[in-house]
Design a protein around this nucleic acid. Structure first.
Length: 153
DNA sequence: GCCAACGTTGGC
DNA sequence: GCCAACGTTGGC
């Protein structure tokens, strides 16, 4: 089993939105970065555990856990000219972009802020806190996952 | 609101 | 294939 971290701006889609969603599940569309695409297409498996992170938030923080409920499949928003994520380079017969589904598991009893993550010795290597990091979907280790969960509970 | 960092685009 | 310009991300 792998572990992941996904970012969302809470003003766009928050962990509370996920908890309120039908079947507590949503499709994670709009990823338009090749490295993240490769993770989604090639490595995510059903049941993988995911940290839900609020970016551009006050404070930016890990806020809960969800899990992969559907593995990578073509991101249909790329095919729709009226969608903000439309990308004419992506064809149905050869999709450029992929999405996945996540299901809500739990919200932390307290958010784990980026400041706390940066201050934790065990979390220094996380992609999240590397300078210039811009991946919205990234792998984390089991130890990192467990540490953040411990801090949030 | 600012701006550093970085990925993408497109002219050459 | 290089690289300047541009757009986006996301912490501060």
């Amino acid at each position: 089993m792998k572990y992941w971290l996904i970012k969302s701006e809470p003003g766009v889609f928050s962990i509370d939105d996920l908890a309120k969603a039908k079947n507590k599940t949503t499709h994670w569309d709009g990823v338009r970065n090749y490295q993240a695409r490769n993770y989604i297409r090639d490595e995510m498996k059903i049941g993988d555990k995911v940290i839900f992170y609020h970016s551009n938030a006050e404070p930016p923080a890990a806020v809960g856990i969800c899990e992969i409920s559907k593995e990578g499949y073509p991101d249909f928003t790329a095919f729709d000219p009226s969608n903000v994520h439309y990308d004419p380079k992506s064809k149905k017969e050869n999709p450029a972009w992929f999405m996945f589904d996540v299901k809500f598991v739990k919200k932390f009893s307290r958010p784990v802020s980026i400041t706390e993550i940066k201050a934790d010795k065990k979390l220094q290597k996380m992609n999240l806190v590397q300078r210039g990091n811009r991946l919205s979907v990234m792998p984390v280790t089991k130890d990192e996952f467990d540490e953040i969960v411990r801090m949030g509970n």
